[in-house]
Amino acid sequence: MAELQYFWQITVAGLGTGLIYGLIGIGFAIVLNVSGIINLAQGEFSMLGAIMTLYALQVLGLPIFAAIALAVTVVTILGVAFERLCISRLKVFSIQTAIFITLGASMFARGGAMVAWGKENHSLPAFSGHGAVSILGAAVPLQVFWILGIAAAVIAALYWWFNRTLFGLAMRSCAENRLGAEFVGINVRLMVTVSFAMSAALGALAGIVAAPLTFVSFDGGLILGIKGFVAAILGGRGSYLGPVIGGLALGVLESVSAGYISSTYKDSIAFAVLILILTLRPNGLFGRWAAR
C-alpha cells in the first residue's frame, strides 16, 4: 500500500511539471507550425518571464498578478521585436538561418539576464502560499492548482482560437500550405509575427507559473526549452494541443525515473525519449502529417 502511495505521489508531481512542459511545447509548436522555425530561444521566454515577474515584485513593488501581467506583456513585446528585427529582416530567408538566429538570441538572452540579475538562484513566492492539499494521500502543492487552472484556460483559449476564429484557421493554413495561404490573401509574415507573440506570451506564463516550484536563474530557460521541445515532438507535428499530452507523458516519466532510479538521470531520460521518438515515430505520438 505504501508502494502504491509512493507511486501516486510521484505521478502527481510529474503531472504538474508535465503541464509546464506542455505549455512550453505548445509555444514551440505554434511557431514551428506557422513558420517552420524551431525557436531555440523558446525556453528563454520562460526564464525572462519568471525573472521579470520577480523584478516587478521586488523592485517595483507590484502585487503578484500585476507583476505577472507586466512580465508577460514585456516578454511578448520582446518576442515580437525579436521576430520583426531579426527573423523577418533576413535578406534571404531560410529556415536554417532562422534557427541559428534563434540560437544566438537564446545565448544573448541568457547572457543579458546574467549581467542584469546575476548568477545566483532566486525564488518566486507561490501565488497563494506554500501550502499543499492532500488528494488521495498525495500532497499536492497549491501552486499546482494554479498550473492546472492556467493550463486549462490556455488550452481552451487556443482551441477556440485555432478552431473557431478565421484568424486562427489562417494560422493553421500557413502551416499546411504557405503558398496556398499567400494566394488566398493571407499575410503570412504577419501570421509568423503573431505566432511569435503567442509563443512568447505562453512561454513567459509557463515560466512564471512554474517558478515557485523550482527557482529562477538566468540559465533556467535552457533546460525548460529542451523539455518543451521534447513535449512538442512527442505531441506530434502539425498538432497544436498534442504537446500537452507529450508534456504530461514526459513529466510523469521523469518523475517516475527520478523516484525509482535517481534524479541524476531524469534529464538524460528526457533526451533518450527524444532520440527514441525521433527514430521510431518521427511524426510524434499524435502527428497527423506524413514526414516530409
Binding site: 478565421l166 484557421l169 499546411e176 500550405n177 495561404a181 490573401g185 493571407i186
Partner: peptide
C-alpha cells in the same frame, strides 16, 4: 494549393480572409 487536412468548409472560409479576417 488547397489546404488538404482542413475541411472543404474551412478551405472556403479561408478564401474570405483578405476581406473579412475578423
Amino acid at each position: 494549393q488547397l489546404f488538404p487536412t482542413l475541411t472543404v468548409n474551412e478551405n472556403l472560409l479561408l478564401g474570405a480572409f483578405a476581406r473579412a479576417a475578423w
